[in-house]
Design a protein around this nucleic acid. Structure first.
Lengths: 337, 337
DNA sequence: CTGAAAGCGCTTACAG
DNA sequence: CTGAAAGCGCTTACAG
């Protein structure tokens, strides 16, 4: 079933069917209704791919890429957006990319190819780091693009792309300061990796500066690299705490590792919030139910998803121009600090 | 940049460029190399959408739909598959659908439209229930389709689609039997909803039959409906346990609700595995680290993802025919039963 | 091995 | 308000 068939059955030309399909105004209500009925009767849907070759641009196609799928928070963001876009009749192209160690410029060029090949109406990228990528490459972005929780190269005056972020460095610093203010001198850093240059690395920068300001840089040796993996977080942190029983606090850079942190403390017969304080970061829901409930910073996922959606629609419909938005993560005191 | 441009720059015809792009054998190595170089130099990627209008079918396009995104397990499956497909140079069309209450036939017809519009090479559907949908509609599936953890209408002799499932009913029944064998007479059922007709509803069928076989159907009044939501699971179960202090075990149909279950018990001053036994189902990783570690059934996500991928590739390349695979979930004894 | 040409299903000025 | 026609970027028999 194609547009020609429908046209034949409706006794009109394919051009007319096309206009009905795309809600052109210059069609009489009579033929519009008639054509629509034929379409309905035959369950016809226009071939999505041909839209582009006909018109030179593919309408209602949005791309989304998640870099670093191990972070459950991006799932929440992705799913919220996915549902909104689907309900607004957008087709979604997406993939998740777990290879976050390759060359940034190469990766960016691959993305450009992806965008060019698919003639998207809009694009959303989650996570990652493009700090070394030259600004000229950003100029080549062929469609409205929003980077979400991505480390970006240049100043926020850039007007050829948008970004939505939270204040990772500030909250990371604050995370550490809260431990220091509580009087902790020996603090473990449960981070993804020292080589992580995503926004999670920015949190680590905050840790460093807070420690330096307090003259506690010795703690920078107390690092457990968990790579966002629970098993790894567990073994690395356990090793560290066994070697350094003087440690009285754990600063965690990502909630996905925190169940392992609680478990390490339990297995070492330490009570979180009493023997060892714990502060985490992200806002995964199960840490509100864990025993004890975990204190930490919470990213406003719901608002971020809404922000991305609204901005993307605004950009696609040319009602808004590119901007860089920073949401504030919120400190939520629960039971571990 | 289009195929004509590249052809001009390479001093060949568009047809030749097309053949190079699609690795046709009948091209001399010299021109192949030359054309490839021009393509590389200009960072050209063929317009994905035009492939279809040219050839009548879109190669390397796979669709995936997740129904009921609240289940974190599907994220794991989705991401595993997504990474595999992307690495194999497939483009992925996907969306998540959280409205699992609408009419099944209508929903199935929408999916058919989606498939017809996008001319996919293959399609994977996660979750849901199409039990009432007439077999003729399944015949209309325009591309190789695999249903994963979906409740399906007809017998496994159907050869026009594939399915990959685990033994939900059996393990659900076994879940309950294990509690009964331990001597429990008063058992709470922490389920999504009595109206859930997805594979999670199948687990409930297992609960019912196990209870009936033991003459303990009175427990069917002890139902907490959590809708896969932690807050709701918490409040519903708490209400139930407060009203029925005689309950000594909780049978949970989905791991996503289990952190709330543990928290309810904690807040009611009951020790899981001692005062109240808990058995869960799915295999979410954080329940291996919770305190206590949760006993339950684990779906073999890794193998399922591999199974889906291999089958899908086999179907697309016409090396395999449709089949219905049932993986076995595994009982893992930990600390709550 | 390469080119010339017809075709895919759609869209979009343009005529009337 | 509708049709006839040219066009989008690609593919694919067919000739030679």
């Amino acid at each position: 079933m194609n547009i020609r068939e429908i046209a034949r059955l409706a006794n009109v030309t394919p051009g007319t069917v096309s206009k009905v399909l795309n809600n052109y105004p210059d069609i009489s209500e009579a033929t519009r209704a008639h054509v629509r009925q034929i379409i309905e009767e035959n369950q016809y849907t226009p071939a999505f791919g041909s839209k582009f070759s006909g018109s030179g641009s593919t309408a209602n196609l949005v791309g989304m890429v998640i870099e670093g799928a191990n972070n459950a928070l991006y799932d929440d963001l992705y799913q919220d957006l996915s549902t909104r876009l689907h309900n607004a009749e957008y087709t979604i192209l997406s993939y998740t990319d777990n290879f976050f160690m390759q060359d940034k410029t190469e990766k960016f060029e691959e993305i450009l190819k992806y965008l060019n090949a698919h003639k998207l109406s809009g694009f959303v990228y989650f996570g990652g780091n493009f700090a070394g990528v030259s600004p000229e490459l950003f100029d080549k972005l062929p469609c409205p693009t929003i980077f979400v929780n991505t480390v970006l190269p240049v100043s926020f005056s850039d007007t050829n792309y948008s970004s939505i972020n939270t204040n990772h460095y500030d909250c990371g610093k604050r995370q550490m300061e809260l431990l220091i203010e509580k009087g902790h001198k020996n603090i473990a850093l449960m981070i993804s990796s020292l080589n992580d240059n995503s926004v999670y690395g920015l949190r680590m920068e905050g840790y460093k500066d807070a420690l330096a300001a307090a003259g506690l840089t010795g703690n920078l040796k107390n690092v457990a690299e968990g790579w966002y993996l629970m098993a790894r977080s567990y073994s690395e942190l356990k090793k560290l705490l066994e070697k350094h029983p003087e440690i009285t606090a754990v600063c965690v850079s990502a909630d996905v590792m925190t169940p392992a942190v609680l478990r390490v403390l339990h297995d070492l017969r330490k009570t979180p919030g009493k023997d060892v304080d714990v502060i985490s970061y992200d806002g995964l829901e199960y840490l509100e139910y864990s025993i004890p409930r975990v204190t930490g910073f919470v990213q406003p996922v719901k608002e971020m998803a809404e922000g991305v959606y609204d901005l993307l629609m605004g950009l696609i419909n040319k009602e808004r121009s590119h901007q860089h938005i920073i949401f504030q993560s919120k400190y939520v005191k629960r039971e571990t600090l």
